[in-house]
Amino acid sequence: MLRLLTIELQKIKYSKSAKALLIIYFGLFMFIALIASIKFNLGFVEFHLAEQGIFNFPYIWHFNTYIASFLKIFMAVIIVSMVANEYSNRTLKQNLIDGLSKKEFILSKFYTVILFALASTLFIFLVSFVLGLIFSSYTEFSIIFSDLEYLFAYFIKLVGFFAFCLFLGIWIKRSAFALGFLFVWWIAESIIIGVLKFVIFKDSLIANKISQFLPLESISNLVKQPFTRLNVVQASASQIGADVNWDSSVSILQLLIVCVWTGIFIFLSYKIIKRRDL
């Protein structure tokens, strides 16, 4: 396993574009800290976002993992191109001739993807931890380390999404087309969900029960939007009488669905590469 990981990391280590994207990706994590400095000046009312409780423990785990997951599109570019380049440089063929098995090839990519997800999770943990210590109203040990399941869900979410990107890269061979397909897929899922909701069932509850099994939908369901949990939002919603009882906790079923999709994507990648003449 370590051998496969070092093989893949060496391929990335010397690639300038991959390195640049990685630096941008992890650099943008830091920018979450900048949210702290957002201040609206609504005439006579000054609105300081950091003081609205978004950086309170344990809410910060939820908020930051949700915000950070938008950055995963940068990783999608890296992952898709690290696969597509193997085709265009014909190094996939050479790797196999040199004695890497097709299974090892897929695994080396998959291990790397897990490492990326792990590094992202660790990074967001550190950033949130520091931000929390600075801005949180509560810094008791037990409060800081509660709700950590959001970090775990974030990790699984990234692994699932990266496995999907890996599969698209291996299937489609060209990075631009694979990324385009990712976008098309996303639109297709939105249409399917829309049709389920408004045409077939006319009931969003049943529709959600079905659509939660779609790959991108299940991935995005892992860390749901955290805004309705904010006191400000809750307060203003109850003023206008809206019901915002939105369950945004991490569900075991969703975790399972994403794990199954991850397995399917990796297995399909292997099947495709096994059947293909290179």
Partner: peptide
């Protein structure tokens, strides 16, 4: 073994 064209990583 070498097949047809030399295949290596161009940036290395």
């Amino acid at each position: 073994a070498i097949i047809e064209r030399p295949n290596f990583y161009p940036y290395m």
